[in-house]
Design a protein around this nucleic acid. Structure first.
Lengths: 204, 204
DNA sequence: GTCTATATAATGATAGAC
DNA sequence: GTCTATCATTATATAGAC
């Protein structure tokens, strides 16, 4: 990590932290205070609150882009390592969660990246015989990504205010792993009637 | 249902419509204008903006309650979908979506109700042999509900601004049905290794 | 009950001194 | 680059007339 301690960068990091913690309705004064500068200086550097938002989005996207953890590592060691890294990236993750809840460019961009990653992962799995094939791989990648991300966001959203982030992620893993593995390996419906009926209706 | 056209009810309905369409950051002036009354009268009836929010939450919960008992959920977490099928409830659904994005009491309350509904539906399905059993039914009900609702919210959230609600729900159904049915009937993993490994690790 | 008018506070943004 | 001071706008909430 290079030296990144220009005032502009300090303000931007403070904004990510404050917006992530308290949401985007928070005023620029609070951000300026957290950065230890005056509100005037903030606007001098970013022009407006919206300019600050854009700078934060851009930076978060670059962080995610550079981070290897974007691709899900399957090894247990990798997962532990990821968990340890969570504290470090907690403000960034919180900012991302806020962005998804608020909608907008960053959320869309990140989601499309995740869909692409999932599609590649699923293709690979099908090719090696580890995953069952889909009649519409693109739709499945989008569906599974949406369900996973949406479920995660909802989990975080419904935590009691002020819950520790790392502990929350651990708790979520504990809550989700069993039902997720059950669903992925054993499914939910005992017979294929509903699916076959849908396919017949569709091919009519 | 008795006469519900008191000014108080009109303001509350207008608030649900406006908040659902433009979010909770919208001012009480916009609500008052939509209701055709003055801002002062609004506060006379509800005390504060927060009081108005609470009144809206309470009313929406009662609407969902009454509607649920009318057509009992035949799918996990299908309450929102059912409501969305009726144009008449579109503002209510939009309000609910906003509430989930913003967090708070209504979202928590509704989610817990959905989990309970899903648990009952799943139990019934297992009992009649239509659904596969789970090692932790409560966790599965919560997981499936969270994934469904989260995925739906994310879908709605990422729509282009101003998309027609009914059309959006139809499009979502089209996008989701095939991959969902595939996942529920055929699963995702070709072999049970990951699941069995997890179960062994857990029972150590 | 309902309105107009206003008090009070907070917001985003700018101007100008240093 | 950085600050202080301030503007214009908007928000919630209240007071008082009718």
């Amino acid at each position: 990590m290079p030296e990144d301690m220009t005032t502009r960068a300090r303000i931007r990091d403070a904004a990510i932290e404050v917006f992530g913690r308290t949401g985007f309705t928070t005023g620029v004064r609070a951000v300026a205070t957290a950065a230890g500068v005056s509100p005037g200086l903030l606007n001098h550097h970013f022009g407006s609150k919206d300019g600050l938002r854009r700078a934060c989005d851009e930076y978060v996207l670059s962080v995610v882009h550079d981070s290897k953890s974007a691709s899900l590592s399957n090894s247990p060691a990798g997962v532990i390592e990821q968990l340890a890294e969570i504290d470090r990236y907690a403000p960034t993750v919180a900012y991302i969660v806020r962005s998804f809840a608020a909608g907008g460019h960053l959320a869309t961009e990140m989601f499309e990246r995740m869909v692409d990653d999932a599609a590649a992962y699923l293709d690979e799995g099908v090719r090696t015989g580890k995953l069952v094939a889909s009649r519409d791989p693109a739709a499945r990648a989008r569906f599974l990504t949406r369900q996973s991300v949406g479920g995660m966001l909802l989990y975080i959203q419904m935590l009691p205010e002020g819950t520790d982030f790392t502990a929350a992620v651990r708790a979520m893993t504990d809550d989700v792993t069993l039902p997720a593995l059950e669903l992925y390996t054993e499914g939910l419906f005992t017979d294929p009637d509903t699916l076959t009926a849908f396919l017949e209706e569709k091919n009519r």
